[in-house]
């Protein structure tokens, strides 16, 4: 996923002869998309578990979540807005570096990072106040399963963004070399879209 193009300075090239590029797709972008495909399938398996517990199971509870529990739909809704906004700031950051506007790029990255962090913290606080625990039944299993899996992805995304910020402040990106921003960006958008699906299935339906 990395390339010497972005390494600082120029070094003598001892490596293998460059490969013939037989596709217009950039290998790193293609790799990221395939990785996301398999990530989507991980979510798929968790959604499958949800489906079995809630739909297929003959003993599935009539109300969701079963009495007397409640999901914090409103807090999670606010959280959704935060995360969706962060996708836009991410996009803004990428566009900025493409145009060579370093300050806007950095501002966008930091904003995105902070919003992601806010999302994650809200999620943790929500867990503490939600009023049930992992052991309280299958509905709780799928609730913590799906939101937790997503939370883990946010954490991974945040680490990637953090790296971009560190490198950004060191002046590593330029209008010509911005793959290092683009790839974490793609991942961040994926995390965002996935949340919308999770939110809709777990909280809303």
């Amino acid at each position: 996923m990395t390339s010497h193009a972005e390494a600082l300075g120029h070094h003598e090239h001892h490596g293998p002869p460059a490969a013939h590029q037989s596709s217009r797709v950039d290998p790193r972008v293609l790799g990221m998309f395939l990785f996301i495909a398999s990530e989507a399938m991980i979510f798929g398996s968790f959604f499958a578990a949800y489906f079995f517990v809630r739909v297929v199971n003959p003993d599935a509870p009539g109300t969701w979540p079963p009495e007397p529990f409640h999901f914090p739909v409103f807090v999670a809704g606010v959280n959704t807005i935060i995360l969706v906004t962060s996708s836009f700031t991410m996009h803004w950051a990428l566009q900025s570096i493409k145009r060579g506007q370093r300050t806007a790029f950095l501002a966008g990255m930091v904003l995105t990072f902070l919003m992601g962090l806010a999302f994650l913290l809200t999620q943790v606080i929500e867990y503490l106040h939600v009023g049930f625990n992992t052991g309280d039944g299958a509905f709780a299993s799928v609730f913590f399963g799906l939101t937790g899996l997503h939370g883990a992805h946010v954490a991974v995304g945040l680490s990637l963004l953090g790296m971009v910020i560190i490198r950004g402040f060191r002046g590593h990106y330029s209008p010509e070399h911005h793959h290092g921003v683009e790839l974490p960006g793609i991942y961040w958008h994926f995390v965002d879209v996935m949340w919308i699906v999770v939110y809709a299935t777990v909280y809303l339906i």
């Binding site: 578990a49 517990v53 199971n57 003993d59 079963p66 052991g135 299958a138 709780a140 299993s141």
Partner: peptide, 16 residues
């Protein structure tokens, strides 16, 4: 973690 994905007593679905 004592979840109930496949534990019928907790509302889980074994064949899942």
């Amino acid at each position: 973690m004592h979840t109930d994905f496949f534990i019928p007593e907790g509302g889980g679905y074994v064949l899942g």
